[in-house]
């Protein structure tokens, strides 16, 4: 028996035979997730220091701002790599990564909109039960699209400021025209303020993950570590049928 189906993780009302451990989040998306968490944390701290140097150390560390900037810029590059990786995963159709594909995220089908409505009803205590899905529900998926957009904003504004000092021809070609449209100080403002939006998203994200995990008892939190969720067999059959239908 898969460890995901252990007694303590399963809903007490569910007999073992009626659910199955599904490998929902394969390692690329989990790697992406945790690398992103780490890089956002580093970028937020170093970025805040660059905004407001809160450590004034005149003797012991004689290159403090230089280091903070170096770390910030390095992790900025990692952040860009992660963004690119995520975009690639959007379009990866091989293997079992069906829950990270773009069509799971961009709401084009009516069912996704209905899910959003129901999820909001749950959060506003109008509906008692959560919307449990194998992958993401429509609302969650849309919030991640918002985060990816925010990532893009940070990347572009960050590159504009990087170009401001590095004057690399490639970066300049890509973003050099932007300060003509949006003043460099507003670029700074956007870059800085978006950090708070990441923090706000992080708070919602952890809160909701804990909430849903506790309510639906399907190993939601565990799945981002192990990759496995506990899904009732009936639902799995349903999902298979859906997948079959969409293939046709």
């Amino acid at each position: 028996m898969h460890p995901a189906l252990n007694e303590d993780r399963r809903h007490p009302e569910v007999p073992v035979g009626q659910c199955s451990a599904v490998y929902v989040w394969q390692y690329p998306i989990r790697l992406f997730h945790w690398a992103l968490v780490f890089s956002i944390a580093v970028l937020a701290v170093t970025g805040y220091y660059i905004h407001d140097p809160f450590i004034i150390d005149q003797v012991k560390r004689p290159y403090l701002m230089g280091w903070f900037r170096f770390v910030h810029e390095s992790f900025g590059m990692i952040f860009i790599a992660l963004f690119v990786m995520r975009i690639c995963l959007f379009f990866r159709f091989s293997g079992g990564d069906r829950w990270v594909r773009w069509d799971q995220y961009i709401p084009l089908r009516g069912v996704q909109f209905r899910e959003m409505l129901n999820v909001m009803e749950f959060y506003l205590f109008i509906r008692r039960t959560p919307i449990s899905k194998i992958g993401h529900n429509g609302m969650a998926a849309l919030s991640y699209v918002a985060v990816y957009t925010l990532m893009l904003v940070e990347i572009v504004t960050g590159l504009v400021m990087y170009d401001w000092i590095m004057q690399s021809p490639v970066i300049h070609f890509l973003v050099g025209w932007i300060p003509r449209v949006v003043d460099i100080q507003n670029i700074r403002l956007i870059h800085f303020f978006a950090m708070y939006l990441f923090v706000i998203f992080g708070i919602f994200h952890v809160h909701i993950a804990m909430l849903i995990s506790r309510v639906e008892k399907r190993g939601l939190m565990d799945s981002m570590f192990t990759g496995y969720k506990v899904i009732p067999v009936t639902e799995l059959d349903e999902a298979e049928k859906q997948a079959e239908l969409s293939r046709k």
Binding site: V14, V111, P232, T234
Partner: peptide, 9 residues
């Protein structure tokens, strides 16, 4: 807590 499972949309 709500009953389990209830996945109907």
């Amino acid at each position: 807590a709500p009953p389990y499972p209830e996945t109907k949309v």
